[in-house]
């Protein structure tokens, strides 16, 4: 009797193992399939950026390149050739705009998140509700009037725009963010009240308390905000496209798009290599930042979904 029992246990166990192997094979296969779908456009960008026009135009796509066939000249031509767009300059513009708007955003965000998390004041609830309601409104509503505002300030000259005007127009409207205020307020609220009272007893001023205690405690959240904001600027397209009227003041996305538009009716295969090289040059810094600071970025993004 016991022998038979053992046999069934053995059989069920075997069944379970087989089932598990089948399941895991299925899961890993399908995940790999989707991972490939995600990677292919990036792979294709890099691959094409290293191809000669005749390889690009090959009706049977070239899927791999040997090292000696790689056309690194595409990168040189996209970046430095006299007739190519000035991507070095666009990158400098983008870094400057990202730095200014990120510093501005972080300052205004820290100050108001502190007020919402730590201080009590009249109309607090009302103001808070107002801000939440604002987040539901599509950004285009703001963009139209903001374009009018910066135009009236004289920053969007259609001819001969000045550099500092373009920079102001591209940064000032983005120096605060309701979303980040809420995000940081959540973190600030987790700091125990006792710390605040202890600091009060010691005669610490509110601002010192914020700067010396709250900010260091909330450092991970602040870093997340810094990165997300800077990456947002790097990928910004719509607003700079409206307010930067001289090609020299382009941000990277706008420069890339102008390049693509310029070659639309030319024999494309002659230029696609350079275009993909330029595309990869502006994608690469984002990838580096992403791989270095993955944890901060993914944490921030997955948390932003939970508030619902």
């Amino acid at each position: 009797m016991s022998a038979q029992n053992n046999e069934t246990t053995y059989d069920t166990r075997r069944q379970i193992i087989v089932k598990r192997v089948v399941r895991y094979t299925f899961v890993y296969t399908i995940l790999t399939f989707f991972a490939l779908l995600v990677i292919i456009p990036f792979y294709w960008m890099i691959l094409t950026s290293l191809m000669t026009p005749d390889k690009i135009a090959s009706p049977v796509p070239v899927m791999f390149l040997r090292f000696r066939d790689m056309q690194f000249g595409n990168y040189y031509e996209a970046m430095f050739a006299p007739e190519a767009p000035d991507f070095i300059r666009y990158m400098a513009n983008t870094v400057l705009v990202a730095a200014i708007s990120t510093v501005g955003t972080i300052i205004t965000t820290i100050l108001s998140a502190f007020a919402f998390a730590r201080l009590n004041f009249k109309f607090k609830e009302l103001f808070f509700l107002l801000l939440i309601a604002t987040m539901m409104i599509p950004g285009e509503m703001f963009v139209i009037t903001n374009f009018i505002t910066v135009s009236r300030l004289g920053w969007v000259e259609m001819v001969g725009q000045q550099y500092h005007h373009a920079i102001l127009a591209m940064t000032l409207p983005f120096m605060t963010s309701i979303f980040y205020i809420f995000f940081l307020r959540q973190t600030f609220k987790q700091v125990p009240d006792e710390l605040y009272y202890a600091a009060k007893v010691d005669g610490t001023k509110d601002f010192q308390y914020l700067w010396k205690i709250m900010v260091p405690i909330a450092r991970p959240t602040i870093i997340t905000i810094l990165i997300l904001n800077a990456m947002g600027t790097w990928n910004a397209f719509i607003w700079p496209n409206l307010v930067a009227t001289r090609p020299a003041f382009n941000l990277v996305s706008n420069g890339l798009r102008e390049f693509a538009t310029a070659i639309e009716f030319l024999p494309q295969e002659e230029y696609i290599g350079q275009q993909m090289a330029a595309a990869f040059v502006i994608t690469f810094p984002i990838l580096v930042v992403f791989f270095l600071l993955k944890k901060h970025i993914m944490r921030g993004v997955s948390r932003s979904g939970i508030k619902g």
Binding site: M45, A279, I286
Partner: peptide
């Protein structure tokens, strides 16, 4: 896998859009 699936979120829609146009 998580890292790979996250890539499209951080990268530039203009740059990747151009790559899709080539594909």
């Amino acid at each position: 896998f998580q890292t790979i699936f996250f890539l499209p979120y951080v990268t530039n829609a203009i740059a990747v859009g151009l790559a899709f146009a080539v594909i």
